[in-house]
Write a protein that binds this DNA or RNA. Sequence first.
DNA 1: CCGGTTCGCCGAACCGGTTCGACAGTCGAA
DNA 2: TTCGACTGTCGAACCGGTTCGGCGAACCGG
Lengths: 336, 336
Amino acid sequence: MNIGEIARRAGVSRSTVSYALTGKRPVSEATRRRIQDVIDELDYKPNAAARALAEGRTRTIGLVIPPAAARLTHMQLDFVAAVVEAAAKVDLDVLLSPSGGDHDRSFERMISGRRVDGAIVMEIRVQDARVERLLDEELPFVGIGHTARADRMCWIDVDYATLIGRCVHHLADLGHSAVALVNRSPELVASGYGPGLRAAEGFGAAVAERGIAGYAYLCGDDAASGRSVVERIRAEHPEVTGIATLNEAALPGVQHGLEDAGLRVPRDVSIVGVAAAQWAQDFRPPLTAADVPAQQMGAQAVELLVERIAAPDTIPRHILLTPPISLRSSSAPAPR
Amino acid sequence: MNIGEIARRAGVSRSTVSYALTGKRPVSEATRRRIQDVIDELDYKPNAAARALAEGRTRTIGLVIPPAAARLTHMQLDFVAAVVEAAAKVDLDVLLSPSGGDHDRSFERMISGRRVDGAIVMEIRVQDARVERLLDEELPFVGIGHTARADRMCWIDVDYATLIGRCVHHLADLGHSAVALVNRSPELVASGYGPGLRAAEGFGAAVAERGIAGYAYLCGDDAASGRSVVERIRAEHPEVTGIATLNEAALPGVQHGLEDAGLRVPRDVSIVGVAAAQWAQDFRPPLTAADVPAQQMGAQAVELLVERIAAPDTIPRHILLTPPISLRSSSAPAPR
DNA sequence: CCGGTTCGCCGAACCGGTTCGACAGTCGAA
DNA sequence: TTCGACTGTCGAACCGGTTCGGCGAACCGG
């Protein structure tokens, strides 16, 4: 069931079969048919490893996701699904590597074993060892998020500073005069997670601009942490009536916490977030949020990567997204 | 940067380098060190495609997930994460293929291109073309769910019939005398999705056994469908006070629908489900549910697959899980 | 001192494709 | 009628590893 077998049965040489298959050189219609018939009969499919070895490319892209320990947010999940789908559309396979900031075995295998033609790396840090590694392996890649040295790489990112800023403005417009930011986990932000850092910046700037009180909180990416951050906010700044967040995972906990404190959303406290559209809609009450277009980002990431694989030495392109805020039911005028 | 280069620099033959690397034949300590030094200096990593070609195995497993169009449930998500993690632990890479009941290009590439040593196939149907394909390619695989001819393959499944039965019994124990089943989508069940079929069976049996009224509803896998199924239930059988479900995705909608009807959970209506533990906990109110141990299933699936790759001709093993129901706050005695 | 093991390494073949140079045959133009 | 171009195919080399048979040297006991 290899190419030699096909060649023998069709009475031609192996190279002719190869050319008939790839179309890289013309083959007469008659032989092409004869070969095709044999192929159909045995339903032969070329061996991927052999082809990869000879061609020097694998027709596979790597997708580096956060380690399994940290469960993916809905946004990330939608993104992964979109990447897989977009890749399938252009006949690329997707190899998964669950790798954190430091490159581990899985990541290393993927990169230096040349198992992929390029990679999409999620959850980029401001300083990211994986990016350095990819740069000096000269493997094409696209980051979801960007490092401090943004010009050296292709990336797609969401403008968290602006979005969180808009959340604050939205709350201020509604009359809220004391708001809190529920950021991502301390570890993540400490490790230089861009969205966390930029959300804090954007929050600070917007709060200052509007002259309202703003308190930034870090919060673990889980419901329990969400609940306890509400307790802290209530204890330290009971006057807070608006919450802006990019921490999806904590939100159910935040909700529980507010309930425990006898507070209703949005009557007593408004919540505005940055989240996956579907998820924001299904939240109760439906969440006023900047809907991150994760599917679109996934498709664009693949597009960008394919482009870069084809032309690795061009100037890296960047895409910075700033989706509008969708008004839903979780925000309302401040109580008085 | 290939094995020949290493060999030349270390002053040995290519085969010796190979043996030093794999340990498949003894190499003197002195040469081993010399080779290792060269390898470290150039940080050489063997090319995966070449190795795969020569060895006849790829050190990669395939994970066949439902197509991206249908978003994954939390259960499935946890499962995927667990598989990736478990695979990484034994130095296996994971190749993703989003493929529905009919095998498509991506699936076909994976299987017949021999890109993987084995596969884990999610969302198995009672009759599944992919299973047939895998069987006649003689590629080791593990199904999540089982076909009508269960003995021919390895699988892991959740005993939905029993679990939904237990949900009914739980509701009956609480005094509910009219209950409804919110099943998965009509298309899915029509296509022979085992859990949907067996949930209906289990529901029917338990309802009959307890002598209570039971109504089975199919329901799309999304919030909107959840809302409308509640409307239908209210219209057709207003006496229903208990809902059993395995449709995670519809549940937020069910919740909204009940709210719209002025009904509170669990005061007016109890809900019992089969769902991912984490998700059930974060639901509001926390969901009484049979917590499907998705992480454990993922790990077991990998384990089973590895076993099967090592010994393809043994009798297929099966694992049927029946996790206990965790009591949370969504179920309560029937109102009277 | 000799014959048989054992140890350590080498060379060649192989895995299954792709690709390049060459060559025979046909055709058209000079 | 000859020469050049083009078409269709072949053979061989190559991609970068693994694996097997064999060979020389060291080592052993008799």
